[in-house]
Amino acid sequence: MKSKTADRLATGVFIAIAIIIISILVGLFSYILVNGLKHISWEFLTTPSSNIRAGGGIRDQLFNSFYILLITMIIAVPLGIGGGIYMAEYAKPGKVTDIIRSCIEVLASLPSIVIGMFGLLMFVNITGWGYTILGGALALTVFNLPVIVRVSEDSIRSVPRDLKEASLALGITHWHTIKTVLLPSAFPSILTGIILAAGRVFGEAAALLFTAGLSTPRLDYGNWNPFSAQSPLNIFRPAETLAVHIWSVNTQGLIPDVEEVSNGSAAVLVISVLLFNLLARWIGRLIHKKITATK
């Protein structure tokens, strides 16, 4: 075969693959949006859900999803980046480091339902907290940490060695070099990893079933005291998220409008992840521009 023909063939195959991927994505999105958008209204987003009557909304579930995401990220991002820095810059190559790396990989590939069971044991029973937002966030941290560690390690390693040497050769300490040269350069790829992890957290149901629970207490959005039982900010209350809500109305819902609620919720979930993604990227770009002085 002439190399030109081979080249054309390869190009054709790749274009075909790209088309398949794009059509799957478009198909999925339009299916979810077409079925769900018509159920989304201001009322749907701002009324609490109902257990038996039709016309319930998803106010609390939506809030819970974002809140658990926030708490998870507050715990997982510093730990994950810290772990990544350790693995990339401090861990001496050798047996121990290899073992740590294998553990991280195993942890990253655990099915989320298993992490849910582990969370039930650790953060619900042993601690005696019962179903809580914190328990859910910790389970999701276990679920996400390996990914963030891995992404941070890879991103830091891929910063050109030149830059690190340049900084050290100017009489700057290792730690300061990490903070001011390596992390800023690795920032865009770490951010991408974190966004992917956040998307997974936002859509996760299995790990939360047994840790954050299937119910939400009656919330008073005017109550900002994080220690009050009615406060949405209380991290020691049970919290059903959007993804868990979709699962629960479909499997054990008594409401007559199961389909409407779950399709609407699915659309809200997808749109939220999308918006969240775009927003995070936009902010990331702003920060990156600022630190690299590019316009």
Partner: peptide
Amino acid sequence: GMVFQKPNPFPKSIYENITHALKF
């Protein structure tokens, strides 16, 4: 001090390239 074979400025502004180590 050392200057390397391949130019390796930090991906920061010209000004910050010089002040980076001074500030530290």
